[in-house]
Amino acid sequence: MAYALQQLINGLTLGAMYGLIAIGYTMVYGIIGMINFAHGDIFMVSAFIAVTCFTLLAAADVSSIPLALMFVLVVSMFFTSAYGWAVERVAYRPLRGSTRLAPLISAIGMSIFLQNTVQLTQGARVKPIPPVIEGGIELWQTPDFTVQIGWSQLLIIVTTVVLMVAFTWMITHTAFGRQQRSCEQDRTMAALLGVNVDRTISLTFMLGAALAAVAGVMVTVYYGVVDFFIGFLAGIKAFTAAVLGGIGSLPGAMLGGLLIGLIESFWAAYLWAEYKDVATFGILCLVLMLRPSGLLGRPEVEKV
């Protein structure tokens, strides 16, 4: 029982991170209907920025952890959203209105490009930082097992929840949210009604990237080790999460992320760890067979 609880905590932490990245996929998909394959690599770039920031802070002897975290978050979000903006501008905007597959290929190219840029400019070696947040709370002590939740795990889960709430509020209640939703529905009509479509799409990309940056900082804090290859796996998992939850739906992305995190950790905990990705994809197939638009996705209306 204690063991299951510990695995639940592990799964939630992992799922929260997948969820944060998945939101980026889902928003982009919602607004321009393309899979942004480079999103995982944007996340990777943000993790590198975080490593640089933490190293700088360590050199400057900043000892206040909350202050350091805030600083790293802000800096990383700023630069990463610049990357999000640039990727959209260079690789996707010229392709708007062409076939559905063109931006997909361009995105795959972008992903390869970003990965190798980072490898070249930052080196192929793994980048470690000393542990930022250590320790945790012991939740439950049984004779042979102690359940504990690390402060960093707690931080990840709380940050994710707060961001989710803030984000949902923004999409439902602000002017930008309304514009964003109107572009999702019908870009031409939105443009006719005076919505600056280009700007809205750019902002969407930047927001997605900023959320990925939060995930990047969290990964750096939690695992402490970053390399140029982390974007690929995280990207695929997060993309799976977005589809599982119903691509285009924000709560869906979060739900999908959590589900995938939980499936992974429980499957690995009780069944065969080596087949956990098979389980993830298998469950995805099952869900999609029963609900072709994902768990919380709107069913596609077929228009003739």
Partner: peptide
């Protein structure tokens, strides 16, 4: 620079 060029070429051809 090999794979870097490869990725860039994919984007550029598509654009």
């Amino acid at each position: 620079y090999r794979m870097l060029l490869f990725g860039a070429a994919m984007v550029l051809i598509m654009v």
